[in-house]
């Protein structure tokens, strides 16, 4: 069946009163409105802003702890720089494929063009279990975004670290997982080229089967030659579903 995205007009309640002749259209309308709620409005989402240091060596201590983001770029990305993140996502009982949209800041060739950067971002899904929750293993080995298919280099080095000007010399870029839903559940053991992340119903890890869909999962992100600035995940809308 098709899943409408719009908030349709609901039937006039009087048309459903006792004594009124009720045709299928009213029920059809209600079921369409309800599927819009469950499969459009209430699709899961999380949106993380990644706070970064506001240290600025342009100012003298203690004023170097500025507390303000003076330029869009954070800068200070050296060749080989790595960082990792865990973003917790409360998947819904119908979460299956997740689209990823992220903002990042890349290292780049310096002004003398002497250093080549290869920004790379890996994302996987791991299972959380226990009290308190702990990461027990991978549910989807996930994807790798690289400069060859997704990631851009910054145009110039530098940032608020190097300039007293108000200008935003280095900016951030956006990258995405893409939304083409594969025909089957992924089985890759290592990150593959960008595709939606997968939330399986269950995952068996070290001979123990865990529920995954509907639980809080960890989206693990590893960055190289770049810094993450924002991370957003959407349950992907599927316009046609089997009842």
């Amino acid at each position: 069946m098709l899943i409408q995205t719009a908030y349709n007009n609901l039937p006039n309640k009087k048309s459903c009163n006792n004594g009124s002749v009720l045709y299928g259209a009213a029920v059809s309308n209600m079921s369409a409105a309800l599927s819009q709620l469950t499969h459009v409005k209430f699709l899961g989402m999380c949106n993380y802003q990644v706070m970064r240091s506001t240290y600025n060596n342009f100012f003298v201590s203690p004023g170097d702890r500025t507390g303000v983001r003076l330029a869009q770029g954070v800068g200070n990305i050296t060749k080989g720089y790595v960082e990792s993140h865990k973003f917790f996502y409360a998947s819904t009982p119908i979460s299956q494929w997740l689209g990823v949209l992220l903002a990042y800041e890349s290292g780049s060739e310096d002004e003398a063009s002497t250093t080549n950067f290869s920004p790379q971002i890996d994302i996987n899904v791991s299972v959380l279990s226990g009290t308190p929750l702990a990461d027990v293993g991978i549910a989807d080995a996930g994807i790798r975004l690289t400069s060859s298919d997704s990631l851009l280099l910054a145009s110039i080095s530098g940032s608020q670290y190097t300039s007293g000007q108000q200008t935003t010399r280095v900016s951030f870029h956006y990258a995405e997982s893409n939304i083409n839903i594969p025909t089957s559940a992924p089985t890759n053991a290592n990150p593959v080229s960008p595709r939606p992340l997968y939330i399986p119903s269950t995952a068996t890890i070290a001979s123990t089967t865990y529920n995954v869909r509907g639980t809080i999962v960890s989206l693990n992100v590893s960055c190289q030659d770049c810094k993450l600035r924002a991370f957003t995940v959407f349950d992907l809308y599927q316009p046609e579903l089997a009842t």
């Binding site: 459009v40 802003q49 706070m51 970064r52 506001t54 935003t168």
Partner: peptide
């Protein structure tokens, strides 16, 4: 050295995605 005040460097990147079908 956290972000204490929203500032000019937050423009554009401080974003959410409201749904309006």
């Amino acid at each position: 050295s956290p972000e204490v005040y929203m500032s000019v460097g937050h423009t554009r990147i401080m974003a959410g995605y409201p749904l309006a079908p």
